[in-house]
Amino acid sequence: MTTDKRLIDAAAKLLDAGGEEAVTLRAVGHTAGLSHNAPYKHFENRSALLAAVATVSFADLAEAMAPIRQSPRAPLEKLMATLDLLMDYGRERPARYRLLFNNPETAAAGGELKIKALETFNHFRSIVQECQQGNDLPDAPSETLASLIFATAHGLLTIEGNGQLHPEKGLSSVKASMETLLALLAPSQK
């Protein structure tokens, strides 16, 4: 394993265990079993190291989505499986999820990070397109519809993470709420 990869893995472990504030270049070097100066030789700064973690994480998500997208399941089942994957990721790795989807620096990044983020989105968008072709979702620009569906799931995950997902408000769970949304979006069969 290269030194860069060891440092990225160490930063990801620290991020998962203690959030972004736990990721210092000194702590990353120590966690990787390297000198405290090693990260400075491979990454311009902490932001560059976090961008590398985000790039690898987006690639991992895209890799996990690919078999769902290529599976013989019905399109709507693929979409729910992909949403389940994202929901599980957000719950199991909340700090990394925030880095990917709530961090302004990540959103503004270009280069390889942007390429991997778009690759992940394109898997999701392609599944939405399949649902549209199967008449499970309305005819609308697939990028817009995919973004709206993801934004809703993201908002629900945020509400859940903040302890504000309450059945008395009509939101029993993220999954049930997403299933309701998809049912509401389904074109009527006249």
Rank of each mutant, 00 (worst) to 15 (best):
G19Q: 05
G19L: 06
G19C: 10
E20A: 12
E21L: 13
E21F: 05
E21A: 14
E21H: 14
E21D: 12
A22F: 05
A22N: 07
A22T: 09
V23T: 07
V23R: 00
V23C: 00
V23E: 13
V23I: 01
T24W: 10
T24G: 07
T24P: 06
T24R: 10
L25P: 09
R26T: 07
R26Q: 01
A27H: 08
A27S: 09
A27L: 00
V28F: 11
G29Q: 12
G29N: 04
H30R: 05
T31R: 13
A32S: 10
A32N: 08
A32L: 07
G33C: 04
S35N: 15
S35L: 15
S35M: 15
S35I: 15
S35E: 13
H36D: 12
H36G: 01
N37L: 14
N37G: 15
A38Y: 12
A38M: 15
A38F: 14
P39R: 06
P39G: 11
P39Q: 06
Y40V: 06
K41I: 04
K41R: 12
K41G: 00
H42K: 12
H42I: 02
F43W: 14
F43D: 04
E44C: 07
E44V: 09
E44M: 09
E44S: 09
N45A: 11
N45M: 08
N45G: 08
N45H: 07
R46W: 12
R46Q: 13
S47R: 02
A48C: 00
A48K: 07
L49Y: 00
L50T: 00
L50F: 11
L50W: 06
V53M: 07
V53W: 13
V53G: 12
A54P: 05
A54S: 05
A54H: 05
T55L: 03
T55Q: 09
T55W: 09
T55P: 09
